[in-house]
Every structure is written in C-alpha cells, then in structure tokens.
Nucleic acid binder design. Structure first.
Lengths: 332, 332
DNA sequence: CTGAAAGCGCTAACAA
DNA sequence: TTGTTAGCGCTTTCAG
C-alpha cells in the first residue's frame, strides 16, 4: 500500500499554494484559467485524489447516509435501499447499511456508530427503540427520517397508507358482491397488520356489514402461518368466500390451504395479499395484492433527508404518506 | 446541531491529558484503575463519542468496506450483502453499498469514490470493467475481492461452482432414467449461463449422450424469456422430457409454458432451476433447483477481506469456490 | 503510569 | 487573483 499523494504535493508540482489547488477543485473562488490548467496537469500527472476523510474532518460533512433496517436480506428493504440510493446519489451521497434484526441493542449500537461516523442523515426502520432512545443517542446532531409511528410528530416520517390499501382490497371483493370476507392478520401489535386490519374493518362497516371478531385469524407473517390460519377458516361450517391477508406471504399460504382443501381460487375463495413481492406474480394463481411501493418510499426518505441536510427545509417534522395501489391478478 | 464534545473536553473534565483519555479508550497502554474511573465518568457525564472521522484521518483506517453490485434490488445481492455484513460485523466493519446497473462508467465512478473515501476493502461484482481499470483506479491501495473470472489470478476471487451445480441437476434427471434433457440458457456470453451449460453438457457426455445443439435454447434471464424459449421446445415433434434452466426465473417461465401447453410437471416434463430464490419454493409445483448460496458467498468475501485488511494474509490471490447443492422439490 | 507536541490532509478566514 | 495560517479531533512518538 503506497502512501497517498496530498494536496501539498500537487501544489508543489504546480507551483501554487494548497489553497489554490483546493479552490480549483471546489470552484469556491475564482482561479485564473492559466493556474487552473497548471493545477489540473499536476493533478493528473500525480494521479491525485482528495482524501474524503480529511475533507470531512474539516467541513463536518461526510456525504454519507445511514440506512438502518431489520434485515437487508428481506426483499422489501433492498427495494427501499435502491430508492434511497437513487434519490440521494445525484447529490453525491452514499449509503451505509446496517441490519439490526429488529433487536433493541443492535438498533441502538448501530445508531451510536453512525453518529460517531458523522453521517449526514439517517433513515431508520425502528422496531424496538422509542423517542427517548433516539433523543439520547442522536439528539439533534443528525436529521433522521423514521418509518415507525411511535415517532410521529417528532421526526420526519414516511409511511405507506396501510389502511387504505387493505380497504381497497376489501372493497374489491365487496364490489364483486361477496360479503363473507375474512382477514388473515399478523401477530397482534407487531408490524403493520393492525393498520391493515383497520382498513379491512372500515370497508365492511361502510358496506353495512359488521366485521365479526370471528372472521379474523392471526399468524406470523409467513407462508406457513397463512397456510394454517386460513386452513382453519376453510374448515368451518360456513367458510368465507374471500380472505384479505396482512401480507403476501400469508396470502401465498392461503392459496396453499385452499389447494389442500380442494377449494378453487378464485371461484370459491378470493385471496388478496399485501406488498406485491416478486413471488406474488409468480405463484399460481397469480396473487391479487396491494402494491407497497418500497422503491418510492426509499426515494421519499432520501428527499426529506436531502432537504434537511442542505438546509433547504428547517421546519417542523413532516409526515409523508405514500399511496398504495390494488393490483388485480388471478386470485380474486 | 450542537457542537460535539471532543477528547480535550473529556480530558479537561477528568483532569488528565487527551493522551490518557485516548489510551483508556483504546487500551493500547496501561492506565491506572483510578484514572480509568475518572475518565469513564467524564465520558458518560459529557456523553462523549469519539469522532470516527478524526480517528480515520490519524490511523488511515476507516473500518468501512464497499460492496459494489449491479443492482441491490435484485434479491441475490442483498443476500450477499447480509453475508458480508455478518462476516465483517464482528470485526467492527460497516458496509457501504453502491448499485452500478452494471454500467462501466458507474462502476469506475463508484470505485474512485470508494478509494477517495479510504475504504479498507472492496467487494466488487464487476460486469463491465477489466484488470487494467482496476489497476489504474485502485492499484494496491485497497484490497479487493472480485466476483468475476476476468480478474482470475490477480485478485482474491470468490465464485459459486456453476458447472457442478448444473451437472448435478442434469444427473438428477439422468438418474431417473430420463435422457431427453434440454437446456434453457441465458444470452450467450453474458452472466453465468455458459458455465452452467458446460456442466449440463458434461453430465450428458459422461452418460454417453451427445448434447445436440438443438437441445439448447436461449433467452434473457427472466420469466418471460423462459416461458417463450421453453414453449418453443415443447412445440417440437419430439419435446424433451426434462429441462435444466440457467436460473430460477427461466425455470418459472418453463413451468408457465408447460401449463399453457397442457403438459404436466413433473410427470411429462421435469424442470430444474438455478439459484433457489425465495419464489422457487413458492411456485406450483415447487421448483427443484440448485442452491446458489449468496449468503455464504458474502461471508467468504468478508473473510478474505478481513484477512487482507488485518494483514493476517499477504500471499498471492486466492480463489474460493463455494459449492452448490441440489434442492429437490416437486418439479422434477 | 502520564503528558507535551507534532501532524494526518484538508478548508476557510484573513491578509495581501 | 493568490497565499499564509490556523485549526478540524484524534493518535502516537518521545520524554518524563
């Protein structure tokens, strides 16, 4: 590993001061064309690249954004990461990613580390920490965009309209004249399942149908969870004609349960999912689902952050709600 | 944004020198228990966090690793990212991620940027650059692990055993007494399809069967590509009894083509994929495929890099071949 | 066991 | 239009 070339080396070679080299590079003050040429020549002859570290120490800006997610291997988050990447890339920001597994200690540790590294902004999918934690660890040192309702009103916040999405899916069945509609949710109080259930409930109520507690089953957000909870639903004396699911994996489990019970989808049972993961379009029958636009969410996070970082915006916390969209396929 | 607390503040408060604070933190020299206590108290009273930037400027180490991939939203790469993340995390390294879309200019730009930011190591899925580019931009400043055969022998290199995987899938059909086996590949010369085809060929040859050029179709690495190329195969007078596909998306397209042609899988047509993406287990029938262990690949990259970065290894470039594994499901 | 001082590579007052 | 100088916050000789 050879020693690097510094701005002083370039200055010496070009016969100017380091200041002038710095300014030719940044354009933050006038430099005569002749001098610029000399400097540029020295730079390319030496193969000089400024040290981002030294720049950061001086300017207090690192041009780095931290993205903190529970699991980067879960396909939802890479899509967010890509949206963020694309949104901030043109402003010269890069993304530092960490997976926390949704564990409190890891979430806190990662936040501390990111603050120590002076990232210019943080996008955080917080599962286990609260406002007090965030205030203590980050304070007002770094702008944060959160994706969790516990921080509502205290930080910029981006979310998908979960309730409206599930509402649309439920309406979709109602509009087909189906009224026996069940909901296959996630574990109580964890993840977005409850918000989605609220949308389902509202659609039924508006249609003059009471959502019986009986029509709601719960499981983990997995294929196996959906399979077993929906199997139970289908084994009843009066099984539902349709089931709205809290996410696509549960819905794929529902398809499996129907197949095992000899029930045909969509003629005997309509199935709707939520998220539109890649697999949704690939299963048989292809899944009707609610698009959860991860890419857009990442973009919006990026824009909120860039606004704060460039001081283009300094007002109170904003809430951005990204709309969902019903994607009708073969399952309902 | 309030001004940060520096090591000098802590030193002042604890009544010691910055040197001593530094050493209590790093443990790089003996500090008396009493002094340590004073320093720790001052640190927690002030909420001091050392600046990673200043540390990096001094020590020339950033504890950051760059991961450069064509598309972080493609589910294969996040799994690699997670493996890398987990492998280097315990050594205190964090991962900076960039998506290049496989474009030469973007790949080069990203590399330059990472060198300027003094990352301690680079993991690169190179699609468009060559050894000369890498030598010019990175030189010997930063250890690089590549995942592309054009750099063979010049950098540490990790790859999956593509040929062996496809060989195993082909053998799987041969062992069932099936000898009319086709191959649905990717575009010629792009991606791992050709290596996988070589494994397919070898299995046939070893079984005393000539692989006719006729038994090979090509398409993009997509579901639609697989659907159309396999549809053509199935429309022939003597359609194959099995098809080995260059990746899972093509294989899922093959399932679709069979369904459309009224051909039953696996009884009339066996289908095998490659990669074992999440969707492979979810389609109907579930896909028999070759596990491409992205997570492990990420881990191995991480370990190679950590070895280099900590100077635990300084020898010639190494080549790590990660084994594949046939996963038999319902499609063949 | 502890401290003083130098300097990593850069930028931004301030001065010419 | 350009240069001089003083740090940014830390680690590490070197010297007690």
């Amino acid at each position: 590993m050879r020693r690097g070339i510094t701005i002083a080396d370039v200055a010496a070679r070009a016969g100017v001061s380091p200041t002038t080299v710095s300014h030719t590079l940044s354009g933050r003050r006038q430099v005569s064309a002749a001098t610029q040429a000399k400097v540029q020549r020295a730079i390319s002859e030496l193969g000089y690249r400024p040290s981002a570290i030294a720049q950061s120490l001086r300017t207090k800006r690192t041009q780095m954004i931290a993205l903190i997610v529970p699991d980067i291997a879960n396909p939802y988050y890479p899509a967010v990461a890509r949206g963020l990447h694309d949104a901030v890339g043109e402003d010269g920001y890069y993304t530092l990613i960490g997976s926390t597994d949704g564990r409190r200690e890891t979430e806190l540790g990662f936040l501390e580390e990111m603050v120590a590294r002076s990232v210019d902004g943080i996008v955080m999918f917080a599962f286990a920490i609260d406002t007090a934690d965030l205030a203590r660890v980050v304070g007002d040192r770094v702008p944060v965009v959160v994706l969790a309702d516990v921080f509502a009103g205290r930080h910029d916040w981006v979310r998908v309209d979960d309730a409206a999405g599930a509402y649309a899916a439920t309406r979709h069945f109602l509009d087909q004249g189906i009224s026996e509609i069940a909901f296959a949710g996630g574990p109580k109080g964890r993840g977005p399942g409850d918000l989605r259930m609220a949308g389902y409930r509202r659609a039924l109520t508006e249609a003059g149908l009471a959502a019986a507690e009986n029509d709601i089953v719960r499981s983990e957000y997995t294929t196996e969870g959906g399979r077993s909870s929906v199997a139970e639903l289908l084994a009843r004396r009066r099984p539902p004609r349709a089931v709205v699911c809290a996410n696509d994996l549960i819905a794929i489990g529902a398809l499996k349960a129907a197949r095992e019970a000899g029930i045909e989808v969509p003629t005997e049972l309509g199935v709707a999912g939520f998220d539109d993961i890649d697999a949704a379009a690939l299963v048989t029958p292809a899944l009707t689902t609610v698009l959860n636009p991860a890419y857009q969410i990442g973009q919006r996070c990026g824009r909120l952050l860039v606004d704060r970082m460039t001081a283009g915006y300094q007002g109170p916390p904003r809430e951005v709600v990204v709309p969902t969209q019903l994607i009708v396929r073969a399952s309902g």
